[in-house]
Design a binder for these strands. Sequence first.
DNA 1: CCCTTTGGTAAAGTGCCTTGACCAGAAAGG
DNA 2: CCTTTCTGGTCAAGGCACTTTACCAAAGGG
Lengths: 145, 145
Amino acid sequence: MTDSVKVQGPHVALLLGEAFERVRRATEGPRWRGLRQSHLRILDTIEPEGSRAVDLARRLRMTKQGAGQLVATLLRLGLVDQVPDPADRRARLLVLTDEGGELRGALEVRLAAIEEGWADEVGAAEYATFRRVLLAIAERGVDGA
Amino acid sequence: MTDSVKVQGPHVALLLGEAFERVRRATEGPRWRGLRQSHLRILDTIEPEGSRAVDLARRLRMTKQGAGQLVATLLRLGLVDQVPDPADRRARLLVLTDEGGELRGALEVRLAAIEEGWADEVGAAEYATFRRVLLAIAERGVDGA
DNA sequence: CCCTTTGGTAAAGTGCCTTGACCAGAAAGG
DNA sequence: CCTTTCTGGTCAAGGCACTTTACCAAAGGG
């Protein structure tokens, strides 16, 4: 029984899109080897023991071909490496190189700094709430989709 | 003096990206004429008195050519119309057709319903906070970008 | 009148991503 | 075993939202 919050102002799609574009701009560009958000997501999703391309694709909700192309770029840049999967001769495990790990670490630091800045502006408690709701939304999504 | 919220879990870029993709999926597809988020943003940005393409481009942070292409699609679909700008003979004002207005209205209704659903799940007060912080982030952005 | 600025268009290219087709190894059934 | 099906991966082609480069025509100020 929500008393109908009667949301106003720009709608969520615009706000989320705008906010996302802000972080995107802050985590792309030459300082990050020119990688796009999708590359960073791949980098971020690779597990310590190594991940198969098809698993990355599934988790990121894209085709294995799409993921394969992003991985190819990361391979070319020397940020990830391929090792044969001992459990399946078809598969290859993707692992971060030292350089890839460093980049991923730098990304985390950068994003943490951004979040700190935001928390400073709106207040720690408010930001904590924001993050909690955002997490819920990201996980559960939209009823009709 | 924020007592250093020490954020954890998936970082903001992932969360915002995921949340945005959710609303995106809920506002695209055949039910919406197959238009993408960028088309809907154009539709949403057109002002009642009519807007010039270059202004839309500026507000949406893209080149006028990019905006022009999206507008061309909307023209072809009969969702917007062009009228000469009385104040500048080079310019043309873009206005919503009845059909375009209806689509925009339907989009607003859909998004409001989504927000209602979220507010129900996390609580009205929490959602209000979420929205306020999101608005602040979307407006102010990131210090270093 | 220049000359610069500005709204718009045209053409070509870029890059993320998709679909479609295919191959090689795996997995399950006789 | 040997088939059938499934699955991890790659190659090739195309879609599509953009961008860059180049241009035209009107505006507007010295």
